[in-house]
Amino acid sequence: MDAPKADATLDARGMACPMPILKARQELGKLTPGQILKVVATDRGSIKDFQGWASTSKQLALVSQVTEQENGKDIYVHFLEKKA
């Protein structure tokens, strides 16, 4: 599957819980509904964290999540669509 086109990117590499969610929230605030935020994280808990947020939220939808390799380490890329 092609990666969705992102309107903004948040580099959350190196951030630990709860910072990826807090920073994503701040970035989403700058977007308009329908736009896509790409979040790049190294926290392996971030997969379930964004799933949990999206499953209860009217603010965003989870478009896709992919795990990629960077310098031999896993990085987790999340695409969030701002809803409201």
Binding site: C17, I21, R25, T56
Partner: peptide, 11 residues
């Protein structure tokens, strides 16, 4: 505070 800030971020 981790739970509180997380919850606030999640709306």
């Amino acid at each position: 505070f981790v739970i509180a800030t997380g919850a606030a971020a999640m709306g």
